[in-house]
């Protein structure tokens, strides 16, 4: 049941009309909300989904992005190369080399799944959005262009105070600490040996 109307006060005739006039006049004195876009660039939030940039140095051609893409707009070509053994008598390794990486932005729906699934941090969101074309075919952007957009990717936003340490930093720190401990132990041993000789 709708709430009963509040007790009506004696209304001054025309007060509604005056209220309307006041609203428009007040709005006129306030700052407008118009964005003067081509003249003034918009201030985009840090996680804006403008375009997908490729950091191709990190790409291992695992094809996860292309397979997870809901509308199949990522095209990847690659070939295998053998890398000679690094140590004498070692085994030769094979390595994937990226030949083509293209995203068709006329199909892309900016869901960001490719970026989520990339296990090697090769795909990033960039806030760059001014890449309109007059021909739909030109919206398929190749790796050079995608790599160029990498320069427009902003730094990741700072962590909250008291947040958990990022995993990669934790791993790096652990390794560094282990190395340090090992070195200290060796140094101690050396010292002991030296003392024993005396």
């Amino acid at each position: 049941m709708p709430a009963s109307p509040p007790p009506s006060r004696p209304r001054i005739p025309g007060s509604g009309l005056a209220k309307g006039l006041a609203v428009t006049l007040r709005t006129m004195t306030r700052k407008t909300v118009t964005a003067q876009y081509p003249d003034v660039q918009p201030e985009l939030p840090p996680r804006s989904r403008g375009v997908i940039a490729l950091f191709e140095e990190n790409c291992t051609v695992c094809m996860l992005c292309a397979r997870e893409c809901p509308d199949w707009c990522i095209y990847i070509d690659s070939h295998k190369e053998t890398v000679p053994a690094t140590t004498p008598g070692g085994r030769e390794r094979s390595r994937n080399v990226l030949d083509r990486f293209a995203i068709d932005f006329s199909l892309c729906m900016y869901c960001g799944i490719c970026i989520e699934v990339c296990p090697f941090d090769a795909l990033f969101w960039s806030p760059e959005f001014e890449y309109a074309e007059t021909d739909i075919l030109e919206l398929t952007h190749e790796r050079d262009k995608l790599r160029e957009w990498m320069w427009t990717v902003p730094e990741p936003p700072a962590l909250d105070p008291g947040a958990e340490e990022p995993k990669e930093i934790a791993a790096a720190r652990k390794t560094a600490e282990k190395l340090e401990a090992q070195r200290a132990q060796e140094a101690q041993q050396n010292q002991k040996e030296a003392e024993g000789e005396e």
Partner: peptide
């Protein structure tokens, strides 16, 4: 101009 500003716009620029 007045109408634009009363509607929170800029009008012709």
């Amino acid at each position: 101009k007045v109408m634009a500003h009363m509607q929170g716009r800029l009008g012709p620029m």
